[in-house]
């Protein structure tokens, strides 16, 4: 049995907004096995970035913990005193933001920024820091002489490599990467993902990779959790979830994705939009867009249930998943929802 490095239990994060309190994450549970890459996939507003940020406890001023736990090696990150949390950041848990520009200061040379982390946070002396900075650049495939360059002198892909080097500076065990390749061209994207895979294997890292792109999940992740409207609706190993999804939302996501293989056919959109989190619908949050919703779905929130092994899903019709998958593969099934949600 693999060790669980991070155990998120029923986590809720709320934002105070003008109209009230909005739970961006609302009862999300997820176990991250050590030494794996776990994908956190979902669309805009599903809470994936809020969840990822909450794990570092770096959150906007209007956000608060509204419940639940995130146990990192047995300690709850949500209630750890700030001084303790600060000791974990960089050393144990590191963050790679979506846009590397957000983690790099444009007015300092990247080497200076890297050494600042190594000296200021890691307590290294200048000489060791310099050697480590060169080593880190080597690890992410950048020539060490470029430590003297400013962020704007790097291409988007190279900046993302710098951001990865920065995150790895103090040898963390858990790396949280928020859409690390989203803004990049396909070729650069693939090269960065290859680099990430190599580093993860080489260093035995545990990675949480936040993405909206199931193909990125398919390429690098061992496990995946699918989020919808603040909740984890399905989780399991990547092959099972992507080839035998049990939640209709996951089925829909897989169908909506354009491929290079197979027939060019018609892509199947999921009609409608995610619910307003200020006033989420009662019952299953996907029910208003789900072609398979029955009365129970609109009344009662489905519990997360195990399907087999580590495969989990929150759907009232979980027992019929196989039949639903067959129906979900047909365009008409989803098209029929167009009028309902309009």
């Amino acid at each position: 049995m693999t060790e669980t490095i991070l155990d998120i239990r029923d986590l809720a994060i709320a934002y105070r907004v003008a109209q009230g309190e909005m739970r961006a994450v609302d009862g999300a549970s997820l176990a991250v096995p050590a030494g794996t890459i776990t994908g956190l996939v979902g669309e805009s507003g599903c809470g994936k970035t809020t969840l990822a940020r909450a794990l570092t406890r770096v959150m906007p001023g209007n956000a608060r913990l509204a419940g639940g736990q995130a146990l990192f090696a047995g300690r709850d990150l949500m209630t750890l005193p700030e001084a303790e949390m600060n000791r974990l950041r960089w050393r144990e848990i590191a963050f790679v933001p979506q846009s590397a520009m957000n983690s790099l200061d444009p007015v300092y040379r990247v080497g200076t920024q890297l050494r600042e982390v190594l000296v200021g946070r890691g307590g290294m002396d200048r000489r060791r820091a310099r050697a480590r900075a060169e080593e880190l650049f080597g690890m992410v495939g950048i020539e060490p002489r470029r430590l003297g360059d400013y962020p704007h002198q790097f291409s988007g892909g190279m900046r993302q490599r710098v951001a990865i080097a920065l995150a790895l500076a103090l040898g963390p065990r858990l790396v949280i990467a928020d859409e690390p390749v989203t803004a990049l061209d396909v070729i650069v994207q693939r090269q960065i993902l290859d680099q990430l895979l190599e580093l993860q294997k080489g260093l035995g890292l545990s990675v949480i990779l936040v993405t909206h792109d199931i193909s990125v999940v398919a390429y690098v992740c061992d496990r995946v959790a699918v989020m919808y409207a603040g909740q984890v609706v399905e989780a399991g190993d990547v092959r099972t979830v992507l080839t035998r999804p049990a939640h209709p939302y996951t089925m829909g996501l897989c169908n909506a994705f354009p491929h290079l293989d197979g027939a060019r056919g018609v892509l199947t959109p999921i009609e409608g939009a995610p619910p307003d989190l200020l006033a989420p619908p009662p019952g299953c949050r996907f029910a208003p867009r789900c072609p398979f919703a029955v009365d129970a779905c609109r009344r009662q929130a489905p519990p997360v249930q195990a399907i087999g092994g580590t495969h989990l899903a929150a759907c009232h019709r979980i027992a019929e998943a196989e039949a639903l998958r067959a129906r979900a593969a047909r365009v008409e099934t989803w098209a029929a929802m167009a009028e309902t949600v309009a």
């Binding site: 090269q191 398919a218 390429y219």
Partner: peptide
């Protein structure tokens, strides 16, 4: 380099 949602896709270097 085109990403695909297939977990068994090739990881050969580009």
């Amino acid at each position: 380099a085109v990403p695909t949602p297939d977990p068994d896709q090739s990881h050969a270097p580009l």
